[in-house]
Lab assay of single mutants.
Amino acid sequence: SEEELIEKAEKLRKEFEFIWNGIRFIIRENADEIRRFEELLKE
């Protein structure tokens, strides 16, 4: 039914948001290391 689809979509959206926030947190935490690594690659 349509309601089930909406519920599934909402659940997926929440899971995606949770994963995305996790990725963003990891990137933020490691931003300095990532930048340093990029500098090494440029040399």
Results as ranks from 00 to 15, higher is better:
Ser1Tyr: 07
Phe37Tyr: 06
Ser1Glu: 06
Glu43Tyr: 10
Glu15Gln: 08
Ser1Val: 08
Glu3Ser: 11
Ile6Leu: 11
Glu39Leu: 04
Leu12Val: 03
Glu39Asp: 03
Glu3Trp: 11
Phe37Glu: 02
Ile26Gln: 01
Ile26Gly: 00
Glu39Thr: 10
Phe37Gly: 01
Glu33Tyr: 14
Glu29His: 13
Lys42Asn: 04
Asp32Arg: 11
Glu39Val: 04
Phe37Thr: 02
Lys42Ser: 09
Ile26Tyr: 01
Glu10Met: 05
Glu33Lys: 10
Asn21Met: 10
Leu41Phe: 12
Lys42Ile: 10
Arg24Asp: 12
Glu2His: 08
Arg13Glu: 09
Ala9Asn: 06
Glu38Cys: 15
Arg28Lys: 07
Phe18Lys: 09
Glu4Tyr: 05
Asn21His: 03
Leu5Thr: 08
Leu41Thr: 02
Ala31Pro: 02
Leu41Asp: 00
Phe37Asn: 00
Ile34Asp: 01
Ala9Ser: 04
Lys42Thr: 06
Glu17Lys: 05
Leu41Glu: 02
Arg24Ala: 13
Arg36Ala: 07
Lys8Asn: 09
Asn21Asp: 07
Glu29Arg: 06
Gly22Ala: 14
Trp20Ala: 01
Phe16Arg: 01
Glu10Thr: 09
Ile6Ser: 04
Ile23Arg: 00
Ile23Ala: 00
Lys14Ser: 08
Phe16Thr: 01
Glu43Ile: 13
Glu39His: 06
Leu12Cys: 14
Glu43Arg: 07
Lys11Leu: 10
Ala31Trp: 13
Leu41Gln: 01
Phe18Pro: 00
Glu43Ser: 09
Phe37Cys: 12
Asn30Pro: 01
Glu17Phe: 03
Glu3Asn: 05
Glu10Asn: 05
Ile23Met: 00
Asn30Phe: 15
Leu12Phe: 06
Ile26Thr: 00
Leu5Met: 06
Arg36Ser: 01
Asp32Ile: 05
Ile23Pro: 00
Glu29Gln: 12
Asp32Ser: 10
Asn30Ile: 15
Asn30His: 11
Phe37Asp: 00
Ile19Cys: 14
Arg28Tyr: 10
Arg28Gln: 10
Ala9Tyr: 12
Asn30Gly: 13
Glu10Arg: 01
Ile23Tyr: 00
Arg13Ile: 12
Glu4Phe: 11
Glu29Lys: 03
Trp20Arg: 00
Glu38Ser: 10
Ile19Met: 03
Glu33His: 12
Arg36Lys: 04
Ser1Ala: 09
Ile19Gly: 00
Leu41Ala: 02
Glu4Val: 07
Arg35Thr: 05
Glu29Met: 14
Asp32Lys: 11
Glu38Ala: 13
Ile6Phe: 11
Ile34Lys: 04
Glu15Thr: 14
Asn30Val: 15
Ile26Leu: 07
Phe18Gln: 02
Asp32Trp: 09
Glu15Leu: 15
Glu4Cys: 14
Trp20Val: 05
Ile23Val: 04
Glu10Tyr: 04
Ile26Ser: 00
Asp32Gln: 03
Arg13His: 12
Glu2Asp: 07
Ile34Gly: 06
Lys11Trp: 11
Arg13Tyr: 12
Lys42Val: 04
Gly22Tyr: 15
Glu4Met: 08
Glu3Ile: 12
Glu33Gly: 05
Ala9Leu: 14
Arg35Ile: 08
Phe37Ser: 00
Phe25Ala: 14
Leu40Glu: 02
Glu2Trp: 14
Leu5Asn: 03
Glu2Ile: 13
Ile27Pro: 01
Ile26Pro: 08
Glu38Asn: 03
Arg13Val: 10
Glu43Cys: 13
Phe25Trp: 11
Glu7Gly: 06
Lys14Thr: 12
Ile6Thr: 10
Phe37Val: 02
Ala31Lys: 02
Glu4Lys: 06
Gly22Asn: 08
Glu10Asp: 08
Arg35Ala: 08
Arg35Asp: 06
Asn21Arg: 08
Ile23Gly: 02
Arg36Glu: 03
Lys11Asn: 04
Phe16Tyr: 06
Arg28Asn: 08
Asn30Ser: 10
Phe37Arg: 01
Glu29Trp: 14
Ile26Phe: 12
Glu7Tyr: 05
Asp32Ala: 12
Phe16Val: 06
Lys8Ala: 11
Glu33Thr: 13
Lys42Tyr: 13
Leu5Phe: 09
Leu40Ser: 02
Leu12Gln: 02
Phe18Ser: 03
Asn21Gly: 02
Leu41Met: 03
Ser1Leu: 06
Arg28Phe: 10
Leu40Phe: 05
Leu5Lys: 04
Glu2Arg: 13
Gly22Phe: 15
Ile34Phe: 03
Ile19Arg: 00
Ser1Asn: 10
Glu29Ser: 08
Arg13Asn: 06
Glu17Val: 07
Lys14Tyr: 08
Ile27Trp: 04
Glu3Ala: 11
Leu12Met: 05
Arg28Met: 12
Leu40Lys: 05
Arg28Pro: 06
Phe25Gly: 03
Lys8Ile: 10
Ile23Glu: 03
Ile6Pro: 09
Asp32Thr: 04
Glu7Arg: 06
Arg36Thr: 03
Asn21Tyr: 12
Ile34Tyr: 05
Ile27Ser: 01
Glu29Ala: 13
Phe18Val: 07
Arg35Val: 11
Glu10Ser: 03
Arg35Leu: 10
Arg28Val: 06
Glu4Ile: 11
Arg36Ile: 06
Ile19His: 05
Arg35Gln: 05
Trp20Leu: 13
Lys42Arg: 10
Glu39Ile: 11
Glu15Val: 15
Arg36Gln: 07
Leu5Ser: 04
Glu33Ile: 15
Glu43His: 10
Arg13Phe: 13
Glu10His: 12
Glu15Ile: 15
Leu5Asp: 03
Glu29Leu: 14
Lys14Trp: 13
Asn21Gln: 07
Leu5Pro: 05
Glu38Leu: 15
Leu40Met: 08
Arg24Lys: 08
Ala9Gln: 04
Leu40Val: 03
Ile6Gln: 07
Leu5Trp: 13
Glu38Gln: 11
Ile26His: 02
Glu43Trp: 13
Ser1Met: 10
Ala31Val: 08
Glu39Gly: 02
Ile19Glu: 01
Glu7Pro: 05
Glu39Ser: 06
Glu29Val: 13
Ile23Leu: 06
Ser1Gly: 05
Ile34Pro: 01
Arg36Val: 04
Glu39Ala: 06
Lys11Val: 10
Glu39Lys: 13
Phe25Lys: 04
Lys11His: 09
Ile19Thr: 01
Phe25Cys: 11
Glu33Ser: 12
Lys14Ala: 06
Ala31Tyr: 09
Ile19Tyr: 05
Phe25Asn: 06
